[in-house]
Design a protein around this nucleic acid. Sequence first.
DNA 1: ATACTGTTATATACTAAACATAACAGCTAA
DNA 2: TTAGCTGTTATGTTTAGTATATAACAGTAT
Lengths: 129, 129
Amino acid sequence: MNIIISNSSSVPIYEQIKQAIKTAILSYELKEDENLPSVRNLANDLRISFLTVKKAYDELEEEGYIKTIQGKGSFVAPKNIELMKEERRREIEKHVEEIIKIAKIYNINKSEIDDIFNYIASEEDIDIN
Amino acid sequence: MNIIISNSSSVPIYEQIKQAIKTAILSYELKEDENLPSVRNLANDLRISFLTVKKAYDELEEEGYIKTIQGKGSFVAPKNIELMKEERRREIEKHVEEIIKIAKIYNINKSEIDDIFNYIASEEDIDIN
DNA sequence: ATACTGTTATATACTAAACATAACAGCTAA
DNA sequence: TTAGCTGTTATGTTTAGTATATAACAGTAT
């Protein structure tokens, strides 16, 4: 797993770590029961305090993404497949809600939004269909 | 103009004010040269410090949305129509970019995204087409 | 035992956000 | 002209969140 954090970002470091690990788990890059780096190792790699990593891990555990056992380490929690699909969907829903809210205020219709989709998709050089 | 702020939100109060006024301007609810509430009045209405309102107004001026004249008040700045369209589009683009990033990671295709669109649109009881 | 894991406690530093208060300055209408 | 609005500036305080360092403690495995 490759975590890159930005020191200058307004997003807290522990939050960046959480996001990176969440994404890795939801995209199956990290598999069930797979070992996460130890708090001290990851902290050394990222050149930050282990307390910052611990905070990220603590919250990930609270949210059910990982499981930590004292003396052993942290592991990807076994997760309900349906639940994971739901969570990925929710991420998208949040943004769609925002888009629709904006479209409503500014009277923008679906075809205009589709145009933006196609524009962004082509820019990122991916096939969205 | 009706501004509602949440004290418990993690979004700063001055940011909430900025967003509300920006939206009102971009949606033509506030028209060119229209008078904004005075910093002290708005502060009283919202029961916050006038310094917080001033911070919001200062940044809105910096971004070109309003114009402030000492002793007179703050006014909606005359804006380039094309520029406004661009800005509204950018708001949507930001979200589309996020959606595509997520779709890329999780292998979600456009029809699934469209389903979500239709779902949210129907929930909000609006015609998106 | 040693060397890894995670845990806890304490203390410090820094920053952003929000506030209170007071004094000052420009505009305008009575 | 003055009263009562506007905005401006300065100073200081409080609070919460983030991140750090250090040290000591506890569980696991070889």
